[in-house]
Every structure is written in C-alpha cells, then in structure tokens.
Design a protein around this nucleic acid. Structure first.
Length: 156
DNA sequence: AGCCTTTGACCAGCG
DNA sequence: TCGCTGGTCAAAGGC
C-alpha cells in the first residue's frame, strides 16, 4: 500500500540510475585524501591509506584486509552523500561496513564506518603468509565507488 | 555456468 | 497520525 510513499525516498535521477555504465564520466574523479573513520571496533589497521588513485582518477574503497560484499547503495539527502553498504563475505561474520562519500567530491571525502567485528582472521593476512593470494584478496576489495556513479569499466 | 555487482522496492523507526 | 529517511532483501544483468 502507499507505494507512492517509497517514491519519495528516491533522489530522483541521482541515487540509482537505471543504466549502470552510463553517463557521469569520471570527469572530476580524482584521487586524493581519503577519510577513514572506524567507529566502534577498529578491525585491523588498514594497510592502504584509503582511496587510492592507482587507477588514475577513480575512487577506490580503502582496502582493510577483509572481503566485503556490497548489498546496497543509497544517496543520503541529509548529508548530501552517497552511502554504500557492505557485508563481510563470511556468513559467520556479522561485520558490516558503510562507505559514504560526497556526491560532488567522490575523491575528496571518503568515510568508512565499520559496524561489528570480524569473527575470523583477515584473508589478506592469511594469504600473505601463504604468499600467494594476497593480491587477489586485496583486489577483491577494490570497489571502484566512483565508477558506480560516474560510470566506468568494471574489470570483473 | 557460476558468481558478483547494481538497482528497485519494501519495511521499520523516529520526528 | 502522517511523513520522511535509513537500511535491508530480492531480482536481473554482466563478466
């Protein structure tokens, strides 16, 4: 009932664009300073500073050594920022992560909020010891946030 | 063929 | 009591 009410929560033509890889070219997408903010339980010390401009002008989620699965994204009007919701790929782990960035400055204001603690070791560290999949694990966390909104090739 | 990511819609809580 | 926002789940598409 009242399906119209839900219509309001959609930031008309901004939050979710029907076309995935469309418009919003990474014109201003720059790499710069990333703001990480571990609220409750600081999992492990993030090896990477944050939004790495490695790609060359793309906002990348700060790698924290864990594998996350994105399950939602939304534009928060209150703060005028985009927010992505991530969940630990491990079903046993109830750790969640919220990444929000300025809609107008995806590369200038990146905030990561951790919710819950991991009940397992970081795959990145484990792989590191094995000396093999470290890169793979890290790559698994290279979510190109800006790409999601500004369009871009997703090398999956 | 399988897995992952993205988008849309719905529900719940708070003001 | 009504409206609005935040958060989560499910389905579809693409790689």
């Amino acid at each position: 009932m009242h399906a119209s009410v839900y219509n309001r929560m959609i930031p008309i033509g901004f939050c979710f664009s029907k076309s995935k890889h469309k418009l919003w070219e990474a014109g201003g997408g720059r790499s710069g300073q990333g703001e990480e903010e571990q609220t409750p339980p600081p999992p492990p010390p993030p090896p990477e500073p944050a939004s790495t401009g490695g790609g060359g002008g793309q906002l990348v989620m700060p790698e924290d050594g864990y594998e996350w699965k994105k399950y939602g994204q939304k534009f928060i009007k209150n703060i005028q920022k985009n927010r992505s919701y991530f969940r630990c790929r491990d079903q046993r782990c109830g750790a969640r992560k919220k990444v929000e960035w300025d809609a107008h400055d995806p590369g200038g204001n990146l905030r990561v909020v951790y919710d819950g603690a991991h009940q397992h070791g970081s795959p990145l560290a484990a792989a590191s010891q094995g000396g093999g999949g470290a890169a793979a694990a890290a790559a698994a966390n290279q979510y190109e946030l800006s790409t999601q909104y500004f369009g871009g090739p997703r090398s999956q």
